[in-house]
Each structure stands twice: as structure tokens, then as C-alpha cells.
């Protein structure tokens, strides 16, 4: 990132090669169509180029995932025309350190998520990729709100524990 901050196009290209599948994948999962996911990917990387200082420190993967999700949420928000309440953007690292598993493999995470019980896995996926609030999850699944929250927390803890045994934070 230091080289990207110095407007080194080669470094930027390497960064794109390394992370574009992640950015595009998150955008696609949230938006559901390739052209819009490409637009988000382009917007994220151009923002990274024009304002590289937005990223300060911490785990870059976690940061770029959050930036991508927030961008996709903006699009979902513009499409909803305010008819439904969307979750707030992913918490920033302003007051909390950006933490994530270092160099974690996407396949490994998919396997870990697959091990979660469906009652935990589904609200987590819906909450993260669906761009919906916990109340909307409760409404869609017919599960009480308190239970949804408890299952989300339990699922995230289990995911953390599973991954913790294979990679470091």
C-alpha cells in the first residue's frame, strides 16, 4: 500500500490482481448481478487509487471487504428508495482496531461456515450479504428477534473458534 500511496501503477495493478476476486465476489453476493458488481469493483479500486490514505492500518482484507460491502449497501439503499430500512454501514475502524484473520483462505472459510448449523449460518449470511437488518431477518425467517441475535452471535463465535485453530488473528 505504501507504493500505491506513492501512485505506483505497477503496485496498484498487483493489488488489483490480489484482491479483485474478493471485492467482486462480495459485491456480486450482495447485488446479484455481474455488471453492477463490476461497477462496485471499479469504484472501490479507483477510490483506493485516488484516496489511498483511507486505509490507515490493520488487516487490509478486512478493510477492503468492509469498504466493498458499504459501497454495495449504498447501491441497495438507492434501489430501495427508502421503502425499507437498511442496516448501517459496516462499523469503521475509527474507534476499534481493524482485526481479521491474516491471509485466510476463502475455501477454508467456506468450509468453516458450512460446518455451522443452518440456523446460525443463514442469518449470518443474510445479515452480511443480504443487506438487511436483524429485524428483517426475523421477519423473513419467522424466528424471534432475540433468537436471531443470539444465533448470529453464537455462529460468529463458533466460526471464530473453528478458524482460530487453523490461522492466526
Amino acid at each position: 500500500m505504501a507504493r500505491v500511496r506513492a501512485h505506483d501503477a505497477d503496485a496498484f495493478e498487483a493489488l488489483y490482481d490480489r484482491y479483485h476476486r474478493l471485492v467482486y465476489g462480495v459485491a456480486f453476493r450482495m447485488l446479484g448481478d455481474a455488471p453492477t458488481a463490476e461497477d462496485v469493483t471499479q469504484a472501490v479500486f479507483l477510490k483506493l487509487w485516488s484516496a489511498p490514505n483511507l486505509y490507515q492500518s490493520g488487516n487490509f482484507e478486512g478493510w477492503i471487504v468492509r469498504i466493498t460491502r458499504n459501497r454495495a449497501l449504498d447501491i441497495l439503499r438507492s434501489k430501495s428508495h427508502g421503502h425499507s430500512e437498511l442496516p448501517e454501514q459496516q462499523p469503521s475502524a475509527d474507534d476499534l482496531e481493524e482485526t481479521a484473520f491474516a491471509d485466510i483462505d476463502a475455501g477454508l472459510v467456506r468450509a468453516a461456515i458450512a460446518q455451522l448449523p443452518a440456523e446460525q449460518r443463514d442469518p449470518i449470511r443474510l445479515g452480511f450479504f443480504g443487506g438487511v437488518t436483524h429485524e428483517q431477518i426475523a421477519q423473513r425467517t419467522g424466528v424471534p428477534l432475540g433468537t436471531v441475535k443470539t444465533r448470529i452471535r453464537a455462529g460468529l463465535r463458533k466460526l471464530r473458534t473453528t478458524l482460530e485453530g487453523t490461522v492466526s488473528v
Binding site: 474478493l22 462480495v26 482484507e61
Partner: peptide, 29 residues
């Protein structure tokens, strides 16, 4: 404690060339 797990959820969406066999939902752009 939970923030890294949330990031991992996002990372799980990473596009994959062999998306179908890898269990990913999408091929890369």
C-alpha cells in the same frame, strides 16, 4: 472477538475460477 469472524464471512465470497467445485457462488470478472 467477533470482528475477524465477520471479515471471514466476507472473504468467503471471494470469486473463484472453479467456482462450482470450490463451493463459491461466483466466477471472477
Amino acid at each position: 472477538l467477533l470482528a475477524p469472524a465477520v471479515s471471514a464471512v466476507g472473504i468467503s465470497a471471494e470469486a473463484c475460477v472453479d467456482a462450482a467445485s470450490a463451493g463459491a457462488s461466483v466466477a471472477p470478472p
